[in-house]
Structures are given as structure tokens and as C-alpha cells.
Amino acid sequence: MSKYLLIESRDPFETNDVAYFFDLASSLAKEGNTVTLFLVQNGVLPARPSTRSKALSALSTAGIQVLADEFSLRERGIPANRLATGVKAAPLDVVIDQLAEGRKALWH
């Protein structure tokens, strides 16, 4: 099995295609891969609890590490201590850590 870093820079309010990326994360995890979904830029918007954040919570429940870029959250006034269930704030350094670790890295 492999380790994957999926970076989501887009949000489901503007782009239907975000569902594809969330489904891909889910499929990869179901196959036994280790998956981090890292939200950045407008990708963090569904991290604020809302109807659209349920998908992120479901991914977390499925064993996917769901992280949201601290700077992108702060930039959008989303408090890091009030994120949707299963979503954790994290520095962008995590992306560099996981790239250096050799994860297969996909940007969306």
C-alpha cells in the first residue's frame, strides 16, 4: 500500500469537481492506502461547520487525515478551534514533510 497526499485548493461551493477529489480520497483509503487530505486556499471554506462540511467529517471517520492550512483559515476568518468535526488546523509545513517522505502528491 502507498501513502498519498491529496491537496484540495478548491471548494464545493464553487466547484462540483471537489466531490471527485473527496471520492478519490475515500477510494484510496478503502484500498488500504494512508491518505491525508490537505485543504488550502478556498479549499478550507467547507472546514467551517456547514452543510458542505459533512463530507469532510465523513472522510475523517473513514480514516483519512483531514487537515486545513492554518494561514488559509486565518485569512478567511475561520477560527481553528471551531472547525467541522474531524478537521484539524495544520501548518503548510505538513505538505513539505509529506513530500519529503515521498508520498504520492496530487494537487486539485
Binding site: 471520492d23 478519490l24 477510494s27 484500498e31 504520492k104 502528491a105
Partner: peptide
């Protein structure tokens, strides 16, 4: 779509 994880597994990197 369900076959993408298997496809990705056969590559060193996915861009």
C-alpha cells in the same frame, strides 16, 4: 473511477 486507486498504485508518481 473506482479503478483509479489500482491504476495509481502502478505508478511511482501521479501528477
Amino acid at each position: 473511477r473506482a479503478g483509479l486507486p489500482k491504476l495509481f498504485a502502478s505508478y511511482d508518481q501521479v501528477w
